[in-house]
Structure formats: C-alpha cells, structure tokens
Amino acid sequence: MLKIQHLKKQYKKGPLVLKNINLVIPEGQIVGLIGPSGAGKSTLIRCINRLIKPSSGDISLGGINLSNASPRQIREQRRYIGMIFQEYALVERLSVMENVLSGRLGYLSFWQSFTRRYPQQDIDNAFDYLQRVGLIDHANKRADELSGGQRQRVGIARALAQDPRLLLVDEPTASLDPKTSRQIMRLIQSICREKGLPAIINIHDVPLAMQFVDRIIGLQGGEIVFDGLASELNEDVLTRIYGNEDWQPAGNDQDKGDE
C-alpha cells in the first residue's frame, strides 16, 4: 500500500509544483494520473522513488517511509519500485538481456554486476519476462536494433525483473502509435492483474486511460481536482482538469483542439 500525505514540492525559487497531495493506493489498483502539461504529474511520480527530493510531506510504501530516507535506504527501497519511462530509457548500446537484468542491480554487488555474473535464478526469471513480453528471440540483440514498441516491452521486462511492489509508469505511450499504445497498455494492465501489483500511470491520452485503469486522479496546478473511478469521468470533470474545451469526440472541432 502506498500512502502519500501532505506532499509538497518546490523547485529552487520557483512556485509550488505540488501543493499538499494526499493519496492512498491499495494493493492491486491501477491508477491513471491525468492532467495538463506542467500539472506536476511527472514530479509526483519521481518523488515517490526519490529521483526528486520532495520539499515536505510523507511518502510511505508498505509502512516504510521514503520521504526522509538516507541515500542508502533510498537505493534499497528503489529496488521495490519499478519504473517505465516515456522514451523507454534503455541503455541502447547494451544487449536486450543486459537491459532486463539491469533491473537486478540493486540486489547485486558491484563486482557481480561488473562481470555480468548474475545468479542463475535472475537469468531464468529474465528469460521468463522476455517470454512474457514477447521478445524471447531478441535477447542478444542490441537495444538500439529494436522498434519503439519493442523497446518499451524491454522497459517493462526490466521493471518486472526488479520484482517490484509498485509500478511507476511515466507516459508509456507518448512516443508510440495508437495500435502499439493499446498493446503496451494492455500488457501493463494484465501484468498488474496477474501479480496484484499497484501501478501509477501518468498518461496524456484520456480515452486510453479510461479503457485500462481502475481509478483516475486528475491533477491541475499541483493539486488533485478529481479522484474517482474511470467510469465517473465526464465532460465537467475534464473541464475542471484541463479547462474549457469541446470534449465531443466527433466533428471537426477535435482537430482544432489538438495542439
């Protein structure tokens, strides 16, 4: 269970990016985080695994406080939080398998990881994850030989290799075409269901979010302005989150609205 209380974040001399965020995410729940650019979605996600240091407030995962942990504790806790990135964030000149196995780094000594001598269990699991995301034949290819969708699958397998208790997903489909986007979202959804894994998915595409997540949180100007089931999302709520716009999917207006 992830619990966030009174979370605030302010960059140097800037305005408050996150204003008093309170959240509880139970086991197994997939949460979609929506909101306009600059609403603080990305900052919120990065505060949870401490890629960004929050200014104040409490974050606890499974009863362990993350917001005032020491660097060593942070590294230890990051092992349990898998993260999937917008631009895949693979190390392009390493093999697919090394990218997946890099999810185990937090569990290995430097020397083990330097010589690439992973425990057999890790290797077996990595192959299973590659099988799961459908890339078993590409294990020894270099990551830069893969297409965008394939790279995102490697990113998912890397997050799985961490054996996480929470999945943070930052704009997983922003660089993908609509069909691949759906496939990736479906993959993330089914994996979370299988493992009972909670996930926070930061996403721009509202219809896609409504299709694949349980709960939606709308962020606007660093504040939560909506928190409810995906089915409860309507035009009023969207206007509250994004501002005035014609939300009807049909018609010519949609083109004008897209910026």
Binding site: L51, R75, I81, G106, S113, R158, Q162
Partner: peptide, 9 residues
C-alpha cells in the same frame, strides 16, 4: 535515471 531507479549504486 532509469538505472538509478532500479536501486543501482
């Protein structure tokens, strides 16, 4: 960032 977020040293 990605490698850091796996808990790597």
């Amino acid at each position: 960032e990605a490698i850091e977020s796996t808990g790597a040293s």
